[in-house]
């Protein structure tokens, strides 16, 4: 049986939903180990234990050069564990770490993975979810970046104690990238877009006013997304952009409002379980992929839906 290493750049007080999905996947393999490029707190360690993680490898981040520390930790952890499966998050930063290590260690790097079988065959999305491919490593080690919302979170309910080890790091070999400034983005109470169960997204059709989208999102406990037309117009932060050059989401439910459904937008949301589209143009391409299409004005339909949800939940 194969052994698994999960790598996180950072873990908050408790692991995120996407991180717990990786822990779940790792717990199906032997010796599931976590490596972190920072120092996790007690609570996070407890959560790791509940997934049967026996060992946590850690190394405090000196924040000297961007990305260098994470690369060293992943490299050292792989060497230390000799794992044949490495699981990473699917964001661009983690993909790049995995890809560099794949080059360094002649390992396979597979992105947008939705599952890994016991015999180390990765299932992944191709062509924006149009195809599903099975890929394996030709050299032994498989490095997989796993899409959020692909694995059902399932802790093992064991309370094993976790052994924490400090990793010894060799001096980094890569040229320095200095961090000139780091600005914290405004925190939001809403779920993180990439791992949310429900996403409500607005496009050019909101005409500068996201309040109806926000209101429905609040009623549903959903994350807020947007088309590039809406983010380019500056109506909402670029972080909310869904699509080819924004965030890719696979929620249970995606509500698209005032978005035409261009190919680049669809690339980021067409693997959603259910799609509901509200658009005043009955010929909008988004209706071709919607489970429920509503031809209508979002400024009327969204508030009515939000009020109805609140009424039923009262």
């Amino acid at each position: 049986m194969s052994s698994a290493l999960v790598f996180f750049s950072h873990v908050s007080t408790v692991p995120s939903k996407a991180q717990r999905e990786l822990l779940t996947l790792a717990s199906r393999f032997e010796n599931p180990t976590v490596a972190i490029a920072s120092v996790p707190g007690e609570e996070a360690l407890k959560v790791f234990g509940s997934y049967g993680i026996a060992t946590v490898l850690q190394a405090e981040n000196p924040q000297a050069s961007f990305g260098t520390h994470e690369l060293s930790v992943l490299d050292a952890a792989l060497q230390h564990t000799d794992a044949d499966l490495v699981l990473l998050e699917n964001d661009s930063f983690s993909r790049e770490l995995g890809a560099r290590i794949a080059v360094r260690r002649n390992a396979a790097i597979v992105t947008d993975v939705i599952d890994v079988s016991a015999d180390l065959i990765a299932t992944k999305d191709e062509l924006a979810g149009g195809y599903s491919a099975s890929v394996k490593s030709a050299t032994g080690v498989l490095i997989a970046t796993v899409k959020p919302n692909s694995i059902e979170d399932a802790p093992l309910d064991c309370q094993d104690s976790v052994e924490v080890k400090n990793l010894e790091l060799a001096a980094p070999l890569v040229p320095a990238v200095s961090i000139v400034a780091a600005d914290q983005k405004e925190a939001s109470d809403r779920p993180a877009l990439s791992e949310a169960r429900i996403v409500v997204a607005g496009g050019r059709g909101v005409d500068g006013d996201f309040s109806a989208v926000e209101d429905l999102a609040d009623a549903l406990g959903a994350a807020i997304g947007a088309s590039r037309a809406a983010t380019d117009a500056g109506w909402i932060s670029h972080d909310a952009q869904i699509g080819q050059t924004g965030v890719t989401v696979s929620p249970q439910l995606y509500i698209s409002a005032g978005i035409s459904g261009a190919i680049q937008q669809k690339a980021g949301m067409q693997t959603s379980k259910f799609i509901v589209a509200v658009n005043k143009d009955m010929d909008a391409p988004v209706f071709e992929i919607a489970d429920l299409g509503i031809v209508g004005d979002l400024a009327k339909v969204l508030p009515q839906a939000a009020a109805e949800i609140r009424r039923r939940q009262a």
């Binding site: 099975s134 490593s137 992929i289 429920l292």
Partner: peptide, 25 residues
């Protein structure tokens, strides 16, 4: 370092129900 074993086309999404708002959508 990777080897592709299969690539299957997913069934394409089909349009579901489309309704026109007449005040109750």
């Amino acid at each position: 370092t990777t080897s592709v074993l299969a690539a299957d086309k997913r069934p394409s999404r089909e349009a579901g129900t489309i309704i026109t708002d007449s005040g109750e959508a």
